[in-house]
């Protein structure tokens, strides 16, 4: 069985935002919609450190839908719009979604957004893949694992090229996949593991 997952090597990520912006354009995301956020782990603002100079620390954590095996959002969705697909991807069917926001509350990762009004776009033209998500008013959206792209043998936008070579994806059940090989022999953690969500995004540490 295919079970899609990702690995992000936190020892390599240097917070460049390329994964986030690649996602934004490929999915034709409107101004207020973000699927992929690169958090600074350090000071209060992006790219600031904590500690006492020069004994400081700063790192980055890119966060998107963790495509949890034990997805809280799936559990709470009243209409069956949010489901875990056979390939392990957690997806939202915009036809079924009523925008009740239950999933947003249930998800600990702050990666789901309700499109509560007609979305505003940065540009007058439509960009991204022709089959990018529709961003329908009154529905909830989040990272789709770019299933449109992987469905035609391409790669998720955020994985196309990470400048740090910190991002890997593929079939977790296939030991030969890039993601499995990246994880192999490496210490890893899950984000907010204590939530019991069983995420499929492995953070290599």
């Amino acid at each position: 069985m295919t079970r899609y997952g990702m690995a992000i090597d936190l020892t390599r990520c240097f917070g460049c935002q390329t994964c986030a912006s690649a996602c934004k354009v490929a999915n034709n995301l409107p101004a207020k919609l973000v699927f992929n956020t690169v958090y600074t782990v350090g000071g209060a603002s992006t790219d600031t450190a904590t500690g006492t100079f020069p004994n400081c620390t700063m790192s980055y954590r890119p966060v998107q839908c963790q495509h949890c095996d034990n997805a809280k959002c799936v559990e709470v969705c009243p209409t069956g719009a949010t489901t875990k697909d056979d390939d392990g991807i957690v997806s939202v069917d915009s036809e079924l979604c009523i925008g009740c926001g239950s999933c947003i509350k249930a998800c600990p990762y702050n990666v789901r957004t309700l499109i509560d009004a007609e979305p505003e776009y940065y540009l007058d033209v439509v960009v991204g893949e022709s089959d990018a998500p529709s961003h329908k008013t009154g529905t909830v959206e989040k990272c789709t694992f770019c299933k449109n792209l992987i469905g035609r043998d391409e790669v998720p936008a955020c994985m196309q090229l990470c400048p740090a070579r910190a991002r890997f994806w593929g079939d977790l059940d296939d030991p030969e996949s890039m993601v499995s090989k990246a994880i192999e022999g490496r210490d890893h953690e899950f984000f907010m593991e204590e939530e019991g969500t069983e995420p499929k995004v492995y953070y290599l540490v």
Partner: peptide, 18 residues
């Protein structure tokens, strides 16, 4: 040597900028 960055991924924002 393959390469891109946050700017390289957002050229559409320049080409079609207001």
């Amino acid at each position: 040597y393959n390469r891109i960055c946050v700017k390289g991924t957002t050229h559409v924002g320049r080409i079609y900028s207001a």
